[in-house]
Amino acid sequence: MIQNINKYFSDIYFNLHPTQEEVISHQSLRILQTVQKKQYVMIRDIAEQLSISHNTASEHVKKLVGNGWLYKERSEEDQRKVYLHLTDIGSEILKKNTELDENKLQAALSRLSANEREKIVEAFRLLSEVSK
């Protein structure tokens, strides 16, 4: 069953993924995803999430800030805390590299019945919920 799910997911991703325009590492994508999915992310959270040193995480973040994909914001309550946020460009880069192409997805879904489309959405919703 797991092999089938992985094969189907791989096929879906291969066929419906947008064309990549930017060169971005897997680790950089994981950092952008972490910032997007979690609230109040700091460099130490990135280091923990990726199982890397604080210094390595800091270097990765510095690069992403330099690219204009992330920005830092110091906490008003505690000036020692610096939170990371996605820029609009960072959000767009993340979308292009982690989501399916909406036009390709719409074309594929249009070949299914309304009932089949509902089943697909429900299956992805359930899998998303239990994966958290």
Results as ranks from 00 to 15, higher is better:
V61C: 02
E99N: 10
F14S: 12
T87N: 05
E102Y: 01
L109D: 06
K38M: 09
T87R: 05
K37M: 13
A108C: 06
L127F: 05
K38W: 14
I89P: 00
V35N: 05
N67S: 11
V23L: 11
K104H: 07
E22H: 09
A107Y: 04
S53T: 13
A47W: 12
K72H: 05
R80W: 00
I12R: 01
Q20L: 14
N103M: 06
E102I: 01
N55I: 13
R125S: 13
Q79A: 14
M1L: 06
S10C: 10
S10P: 00
N103W: 08
R117Q: 14
M1F: 05
E116W: 04
Y40M: 10
L126Y: 13
A114I: 09
S10Y: 07
H54Y: 15
Y83Q: 04
E76S: 12
K95A: 12
K104A: 02
S53A: 04
L100C: 07
L64W: 02
I52S: 07
Y13H: 15
F124C: 06
K132A: 12
T56F: 09
E22S: 12
S128I: 03
W69P: 09
N115I: 13
E92H: 11
G90V: 00
R80M: 11
N97H: 15
I24N: 06
S53C: 09
S10G: 14
V41N: 03
Q27W: 02
G90Y: 00
A47H: 05
F124K: 07
L50T: 02
K7I: 04
Y71P: 00
M42A: 11
S28R: 02
K63A: 03
L70H: 04
A107I: 03
L84P: 04
K104M: 02
L127G: 04
V82M: 08
I2Y: 08
N6A: 01
L109A: 14
E21F: 08
F9M: 07
L94N: 07
N15K: 12
L109M: 15
R44L: 06
I24M: 11
V41T: 11
R111E: 10
E21R: 15
F9P: 00
M42L: 04
S51V: 09
E122W: 03
Q3T: 08
